[in-house]
């Protein structure tokens, strides 16, 4: 729950000050203070319904804060900000969907334009879309149908679409859902290396900390109407999590550095 005191030399590209949000009468979370710097990799954790996706909706300008301040590059969030790339949590794609991946990535560049593209514009943009696919090692996916891609391949295409607009911030909502452990690890490594290469800050929502541990700089933990932030080392401890949940939660470590968090199911308020 502390403001970033150190690292002032680096630019804070997202800044939240005493930020609260509600849906109608229900307070999702309140009094959140955090800042995110350029190129940082931030994991967002917490039980279902704790307001992780809500944080993304605030950043995208789709939902106004109820009180407090939120700034992205020193300005209030606004819809259609090209500096943000967004990969929502998605439903599985119909296996009948024959559209090629490249067209889908292309929409990330100019899907919000009116009218049709001139042939020359279209060619230039398709090249950019190809470059984006290449940056996620997805060149061979370009002309394959979306419906025929595996879960991991689809996530790379979604990532390419979000990167195609050359954003400074990536918002990834549960990209690891429905992937097996090996693919989880591969995708996290890929996201981290692309983000490092392009100096993109990543905010990634996950339900398990373990695949993120090797790459994550900081965590935002949402639970029971509160938002806590800090390094995994500070947050994922028996003491810190018990305080957050307001109930006994236990953190266990194994010999490979993996962690198991026990007791969170019982401790999360479901209202």
């Amino acid at each position: 729950m502390k403001r970033m005191g150190k690292g002032k030399t680096e630019e804070a590209i997202i800044q939240a000050i005493d930020l609260s949000v509600r849906y109608g009468e229900r307070v999702v979370w309140q009094h959140a203070d955090f800042s995110i710097r350029r190129g940082e990799f931030v994991g967002i954790l917490g039980p279902n319904g704790a307001g992780k996706t809500t944080l993304f909706r605030l950043l995208l300008g789709l939902l106004p804060p109820s009180t407090g301040r939120l700034e992205i590059f020193g300005a209030a969030p606004r819809r259609g900000n090209p500096r943000i790339g967004y990969v929502p949590q998605r439903h599985p794609i119909d296996s009948d969907m024959r559209l090629e991946a490249l067209e889908f990535v292309h929409l990330g560049i100019s899907g919000n334009r009116w009218g049709v593209l001139l042939p020359s514009e279209s060619r230039a943009e398709r090249q950019k879309a190809l470059d984006a696919l290449q940056s996620v090692n997805g060149t061979e996916l370009a002309h394959r149908s979306l419906g025929q891609l595996s879960g991991g391949e689809l996530q790379r295409v979604f990532l390419a679409q979000a990167l195609a607009g050359k954003p400074d911030i990536l918002l990834l909502d549960e990209p690891l859902a429905n992937l097996d452990i090996r693919r989880e690890t591969e995708l996290v490594q890929l996201i981290a290396s692309v983000a490092r290469a392009q100096q993109v800050a990543v905010l990634l929502i996950a339900h398990d900390i373990n695949p993120l541990l090797p790459v994550v700089d900081r965590l935002i933990y949402a639970v029971n109407g509160r938002i806590a932030t800090g390094t995994p080392h500070k947050i994922i401890t028996t003491k810190a999590l018990s305080a957050l949940y307001g109930a006994p939660v236990e953190v266990l470590h194994d010999s490979h550095g993996r962690v198991a968090v026990l007791g969170t199911e019982e401790a999360a308020h479901h209202d």
Partner: peptide
């Protein structure tokens, strides 16, 4: 013709299209 790209975007990818200001 006027709405082609936006229509295609929302047809395929409603959430992302919305986040991009459509």
């Amino acid at each position: 013709i006027l709405i082609y790209r936006r229509l295609l975007f929302t047809s395929l990818d409603e959430d992302v299209a919305e986040s991009r200001g459509v």
